[in-house]
Design a protein around this nucleic acid. Structure first.
Lengths: 155, 155
DNA sequence: TATTAATTGAAAAAGATTTTCAATTAACTC
DNA sequence: GAGTTAATTGAAAATCTTTTTCAATTAATA
């Protein structure tokens, strides 16, 4: 688990100054289980740190992305939605389309598929993007939706 | 292969009017092997149909998306990039990160993985997003990059 | 405590997307 | 082919989102 303190140390360790504004942004993202847009982060940060500028939030998000400390979540309307990187290595997301909660999973053996796709297409494959979407347990209970396994909508 | 004529018939068949502007947008997207942003589509369409409004392009893109005739490609900077849906059913993309070319593939057996992920997470999984990224053969030859198979950058 | 380079925030600029509304036109009827 | 009608168009304005600029502030170090 990446505490906001650990993150702070990483930031400082890399030679960046640790300002109250940065701390506030860190806390907000680190604490959230959902993916948040820059605007949403700004709104939340303002509660603990009124007067912070939206620019500062954008700059912090850029910094975190550069340091590879955040992930992007892929939603249907756009992909400007951030999430603290929880497993630090290779991993993927399962996103709840109802509440936005994101859960991670690490084991994804796509190598066979990748090999086949590479051979057929002639591409040198450099990376992949894999994300599952669905309803988390909680939202499922709320809405009374059916069992956990169903193949349906495809992005 | 979805010709621009077939697409035109679908549009008309669903009760939408087929205007010269719509035809022009259709031609541009249907003809391209790359994914195009609304702005790029606008630029191209203007060459055959000067005077078309950017709004019209946006509206056409919305219509095509509603009719499920386009796909979205997921890029690192944002996902407002469209592509004619070529296999009409379930499929995925391999995108060239250099030239933007997109190639499709249909066989993706994720059911085992999906089953496991669903059980572990408690999610009712409704869909998935899978895309490979890399260098197409042509770009590979241009830049002299290595063989086709490499596991690297992960989105 | 003084120094210094990084950081901040207001404001403006730049972009992207959506809304509004009067004028135009594709599709249909006769 | 002309008339009717509802859908479509495009200019302009309104909204949002993101980036740039620059003077003032401040964290980190000595």
């Amino acid at each position: 688990m990446m505490t906001s303190e650990k993150l702070a140390n990483i930031i400082r360790g890399r030679g960046y100054k640790l300002t109250p504004q940065r701390r506030a942004v860190l806390r907000v993202i680190a604490r959230s289980r959902d993916h948040l847009t820059p605007g949403a982060i700004y709104e939340r940060v303002r509660k603990e740190h009124p007067g912070i500028g939206l620019v500062t939030v954008y700059r912090m998000l850029e910094l975190l992305a550069d340091l590879n400390l955040t992930c992007r979540v892929h939603t249907e309307d756009g992909c400007r939605s951030y999430l603290m990187r929880r497993p630090s290595g290779h991993h993927h997301h399962i996103m709840c389309t109802s509440c936005g909660r994101v859960v991670d999973f690490t084991k994804c053996d796509l190598s066979e598929l990748q090999q086949r796709v590479s051979e057929k297409s002639g591409f040198k494959i450099e990376g992949h993007l894999l994300q599952f979407n669905g309803l988390c347990q909680e939202c499922r209970e709320k809405t009374g939706a059916g069992g956990p396994f169903r193949t349906g909508k495809v992005w």
